[in-house]
Computed example of a mutant assay.
Amino acid sequence: MKLKKIIALSTVAIMSLAMFTGCGSKETADNGEMKLVKDGTLTVGLEATYPPMEYIDEETGELTGFDIELAKAIAADMGLEVEFVQVGFDAIFAGLDADKYDIVISAISVTEERQETLELSDTYLANQQVIISAKDGKQITSVDQLTGKKVAVQVGTTADEACQYYQNDKGMEFELQQFDDMTAAFLALKSGSVDCVVTDLVVGDYYVNNNPNDYVKSCDNLTNEPIAIAAKKGNTAVINAVNTSLKSLIESGKTAEISKELFGEDLTKNIDSNLKNYDE
């Protein structure tokens, strides 16, 4: 798949702020009836600099990626319009809690902590944390080799949490550089200002496959973190509706179709639901 150019981060930030603050809200409650932020519209929070899951195509100016197509399909199956609300990932769950949008579809890895603080859908995509190194540089093949290195992550992600765990709980000494978006993290790796990037498998594979002369997946299976859709804690009505649509889309082959188009394989079936933490 040809790598699409990503629109400038500053433009995305401006769009994100405008959309985030401009969205109206209603209280969501689980009383057996699904209540939406906007009547007749499924509002979806996302962080739009995370290819191939969600990003802006510079040529068209449109949101694209796996999660975008999935959200459109879910809304259509539910008989609703869809509206996307862009927000920085470090604030995405706060916006959900404040009823700025109904759900978050933004490569949300399932963790034990998120299971306690969010309503999560059935998983829809296989995923794990991996290490991406420069093709012509020192290739990091294990967590132990992070010592003394400069490590890039996107702030607020499970990769960020894992690296902070290795530093704070395991006492590993390396320089952690937290970027607002993955595009900047991979540019830092390409320029040599960091030694590796820790990220989701689907994102790492995307950059490696589209830039085989620049990047290599040097270590995988750090975790097992399948991806799900998130709603505000207690809002089981919307998650139940989402799960019904997800099941329908999986059975019809729609999710497999989207996955094969973007990833070249179907990552939406035979998902390992057993979580593997980074300290196991």
Rank of each mutant, 00 (worst) to 15 (best):
M1W: 03
K2S: 14
K4A: 14
I7P: 00
S16K: 08
L17F: 05
F20D: 06
T21L: 15
C23S: 13
G24N: 10
S25N: 13
N31I: 13
L36E: 02
L36C: 05
V37A: 05
T43A: 05
V44H: 03
G45M: 06
E47L: 09
E47F: 12
Y50L: 13
D57P: 01
G61L: 07
F66W: 08
A71N: 08
K72H: 11
A73M: 11
A75E: 01
A75D: 08
A76P: 00
V82G: 01
E83F: 02
Q86S: 15
V87P: 00
F89R: 09
F89N: 10
F93V: 05
F93I: 07
A94D: 12
Y101K: 02
R114Q: 03
E116S: 13
Y124P: 02
L125W: 01
V130A: 12
K135H: 11
D136A: 15
K138Y: 15
K138R: 10
I140Y: 02
T141S: 14
D144Q: 15
Q154C: 06
Q154E: 11
A159M: 04
D160R: 02
E161W: 02
E161A: 12
A162M: 14
D169C: 08
D169L: 08
K170T: 06
M172V: 10
M172T: 04
Q178P: 01
D180W: 05
D181G: 12
T183L: 14
A185L: 06
A185S: 07
G192H: 08
V198N: 00
L201M: 11
L201G: 00
V203S: 12
V203W: 04
V203D: 08
G204R: 03
D205Q: 15
Y206T: 09
V208H: 04
N210V: 14
N210F: 01
N211P: 06
P212L: 10
D214K: 10
C219K: 15
D220P: 00
L222R: 00
T223D: 05
I229N: 01
G234R: 08
G234M: 10
A237V: 11
V238I: 15
V238E: 04
N240L: 00
N240M: 03
N243I: 09
S245P: 02
S248I: 04
S248W: 00
L249Y: 06
S252A: 13
S252Y: 01
G253P: 08
G253S: 10
T255D: 05
A256N: 07
S259L: 06
K260G: 05
D266M: 10
K269R: 07
N270P: 01
N270A: 13
I271Q: 01
N274A: 13
N274H: 12
N277K: 14
